[in-house]
Design a binder for these strands. Structure first.
Lengths: 193, 193
DNA sequence: TGCATTTCTTACCAAATGACAAGAACTTTT
DNA sequence: AAAAGTTCTTGTCATTTGGTAAGAAATGCA
């Protein structure tokens, strides 16, 4: 039961001694998921934060017509949760579902709060993670504003090729804000280049 | 020199006693800006965080063709800064420019760090602000994924009409991810309804 | 005030995208 | 293995959007 990946991740987010990172990692427990399991269901409060060590997780919402819209892909190494629901303890509006068997390291809200109070490096790490997440989202938003559909697709396949091996093109299409039909056409054109 | 708006904002973000909120607010100083002043220029490190009490601020980036893309509008009551640049002390990629005369309450990075260490409620407030910002951005991203251009325009004018009084339609167009030509057409159609 | 600049609208046309439907390829279930 | 369901592609057509340009309106500046 090696937490090496988690320890490494913590140190990457916030440089600190290995001892300190190990101390933090001790508050996480292993959890295994099968493909299609739900880590979080909309309407419930997100009470755990998961470090994804293995596997792929998809976040999505369901719109009024019943269509799923992919809001996030979470692939190793990253934390998966709904920040708003987790920290404010309000019902979540998103679903987190595994796209493959997954291995995660989990910490509960209560334990995390406890650690925030007692380990300054942990809360600093938490802040850095939030900032990194905000920055990534900001970057993605910028892509929505200034890139074409084709460019967004190319960017995704270049930066996160692993996503394509575990989910449908339909899910990828809604993630970049287009229909599956349109994505299929884009893929066809790119083949001819 | 009343900090009432700031104190109120702090208490709204994180419920706490008025005494505590006042104590926090004491670390902020008043700053006045004229229209078109820069609060932050790209390439420089964001060393201050500004609570906007009066006025409107626009965040934007410049793309390869020299076109400005509006990334944010900041209107009272809200904090304006570049989280990534501010907390990681790296050069910012965005510009923050006032669209009107502004009155802000400012705190420097150093003072904020100091306060984070000495006032638990302050750092908790900081975390809540980050989460709120993340959540708003997430919500906006969701709008990009599942709303039409027209719907995004209508949502913006409904939730933030004040923006329209201080900036050009061109800036609003890039904010919702369309061209000014397209926005003009949308406005025309909405008039006929 | 008068000139220059910017903003906003409108028109035209080409390109991109969506809605819908059909069929092929592939998976899952029974 | 057969049936049912899903995914992906393709075609058609209507709609939306972008690029460009021109002109009107508004604004800023000398």
């Amino acid at each position: 039961m090696s937490k090496q990946a988690l320890i490494q991740f913590i140190q990457n987010v916030l440089p600190m001694s290995e001892e300190k990172a190990k101390q933090i990692s001790q508050h996480f427990n292993e959890k295994l998921f099968l493909k299609n399991d739900y880590i979080l269901k909309e309407g419930t409060v997100c009470r755990e934060s998961h470090f994804i060590e293995e596997g792929l997780v998809r976040g999505y919402v369901v719109d009024l017509d019943g269509n799923e819209v992919t809001t996030h892909f979470y692939s190793n190494p990253i934390f998966a949760n709904d920040f708003l629901s987790f920290f404010k303890r309000v019902p979540s509006k998103i679903n987190l579902q595994t796209l493959s068997n997954c291995k995660t390291w989990v910490i509960s809200y209560d334990e995390l709060q406890q650690c925030f109070h007692t380990i300054p490096e942990f809360r600093e790490f938490g802040r850095m993670m939030l900032i990194n997440s905000y920055s990534r989202l900001q970057n993605r938003m910028l892509g929505m504003l200034q890139l074409s559909s084709e460019q967004r697709y190319e960017k995704l396949i270049k930066t996160h090729p692993e996503i394509f091996q575990n989910t449908s093109l339909k899910n990828i299409a809604t993630y970049i804000g287009i229909t599956d039909t349109s994505l299929s056409r884009i893929r066809k054109e790119l083949l001819h280049k």
